[in-house]
Design a protein around this nucleic acid. Structure first.
Lengths: 160, 160
DNA sequence: GACTCACTACTCGGATACCTTCTGTCCGAGTTACTAAGG
DNA sequence: CCTTAGTAACTCGGACAGAAGGTATCCGAGTAGTGAGTC
């Protein structure tokens, strides 16, 4: 039960992408975070497929958020990278073995599965409750109002 | 982000173990659920290490719950099988790269990690809210009051 | 008949292969900006 | 000076190896019941 590591990268990328208006190439995002650009590409492609960021091709191309940060939840990003599949998959072992529960009693999911799925929903709800805009506000609170614009300037102007 | 499949087996085993007073050998539990006894052993050993079930060795030995079902939460079982590690591990990428956040601003966990950990806590709280006794009550509601005692009799008397 | 002892069968426990998934990397297709020549 | 075609560089996208963790399995250590033998 370990979350895909790329989720962290993707979330940070979404946060910094709120600071720019022009496309930011993948190599720049990788250099900013000091991570493998090849692997970051994989995550950004997943975000692109999910419609969270838009890919601009060609010279001076790059990635751009498709909608305001307040309309992107953390859950959107997590599901884009890690998939929408539930964390728990019920194999219906109650219907196996010598004392299998008869099918007519299996209209509802089994109690074990219900409990696990409740927890899965709680997890997803918590992720849905936070948006990228919330993260941006938190960063501002933690590191001061100048931190994010500085990142935006670096991404735009390429001043090391 | 897929939960260890053995968790489902372990939970079902805990539920059926509430129906007996004498130790139940692993082979019996495996046969009842029609799963690999070798692999089920791994899960039961983990439960034993976590102090949820007690292993009785020797002839007529087997496994037994160590405490009342109401005192065993689903979270206990999940953490016994899957480990207590958080689903999200922060790699502190904010402290890397050319615009790394200075360490004095990193007293708190970064906003991304905070959001993920909030969700992790919500998941665990939901799992903690359900006990094995609750699952037993649900099974009784779903399959009738006779279902579980029947399993108990099968486990005790070995009548197919 | 009761006690003792050795044996046997059964149990759990940890160490060992196999396989799916995640991690990390590479090269090719497509697009845009730039440049230079021609009208 | 403006237009236009060509070029070149830069971008994303999907296909390709390597590593880690989960899945499945096996055999050895230990224990309790059982039976025979003896007093």
């Amino acid at each position: 039960m370990k979350l895909n590591g790329g989720v962290e990268w993707a979330l940070h990328c979404c946060v910094v992408l709120t600071t720019v208006q022009t496309p930011v190439p993948m190599t720049q995002l990788a250099e900013l975070h000091d991570v493998s650009s090849s692997y970051l590409a994989k995550q950004l492609q997943a975000l692109s497929r999910a419609g969270i960021i838009h890919a601009v091709q060609g010279h001076a191309g790059g990635y751009l958020l498709t909608r305001p940060a307040k309309d992107i939840t953390v859950l959107d990003v997590v599901e884009a990278i890690d998939g929408k599949d539930s964390t728990f998959v019920c194999t219906e072992i109650r219907q196996r073995g010598p004392l299998a529960t008869p099918p007519q009693d299996c209209k509802k999911a089994c109690p074990v599965a219900r409990a696990m799925i409740r927890a899965d929903h709680a997890w997803r709800e918590a992720l849905r409750a936070t948006t990228i805009a919330d993260l941006v506000a938190d960063v501002r609170r933690d590191s001061g109002p100048a931190a994010l614009p500085r990142v935006g300037a670096w991404l735009a102007g390429d001043e090391t």
